[in-house]
Amino acid sequence: MNIVACVKQVPDTETLIKVKPDRSGIDETGIKWVMNPYDEFGVEEALRLKEKLSGEVIIVSVGPARALETIRTALAMGAERGIHIVDPALDSADPFTIASALAAAIKNIPYDIIFCGQRAIDDDCGQVGAILAELLGIPQVTVITKVDVDGNTIKVTRPIEGAQLIIESSLPCVVTAQKGLNEPRYASLPGIMKAKKKPVDVKDAASLGVSIDVKAKITKTLPPPARPPGKIICGEDPAEKARELARLLREEAKVI
């Protein structure tokens, strides 16, 4: 079984995010970068399938030079090799362009299943997996919490409001991973050491033959609005204070 897992390097959820003064994006200084947690579920599932069915796990990532660290993290977990697509033109590209680059890299290698995270925690677009499947012309099953492979078919579980769908698909296909799929492993030290020596192919857009066809552009990045201060209702008479509270909740907060 040949399994591809796509990973994206994103800022750690606890890291301090500062928007650049010109609002063109975030200031990257001091940011702690980690593997997108949803991608990590994908990597873990890929490794578990490989351990069960034998084969190879290839990690593919689009991102600047620093993203190599994230590829190495996945290699330390147990993947065999990596493809790192580095191109300044792709640095702030839209999901379509990213998916195009991934498709261009993946179509040249054998694959039975492609794992992506259901979305990345930085831009929350949630499109790359779907577009990738379209570009490769293969089925996609998205937001998946359980994967079973049987021969040439895959049976997956997709939670929906109040129920879950059991979906079958033929292989190859794209699976986008949701929280609950598994608990990603902690890399062993020999794993970390070996990962340093595992092969990572570095490609750029030209070598993959990807044309940068930007469909969407981030025009402005804004920080979330500062939280307005709380309000304290003053007064002597509790009944009056309660009336005032009800009035404010109704008229100002419009919640009752």
Partner: peptide, 30 residues
């Protein structure tokens, strides 16, 4: 831990927090 990476999940989280934010709680290092 180092060879088998087989240990309590909560300790795994602690280690990740230390890795990412240099503290066991995982609060932003800033």
């Amino acid at each position: 831990v180092l060879m088998e990476a087989d240990f309590a999940p909560e300790l795994q989280l602690t280690f990740r927090n230390m890795e990412n934010n240099s503290n066991p709680w995982g609060v932003g290092s800033h």
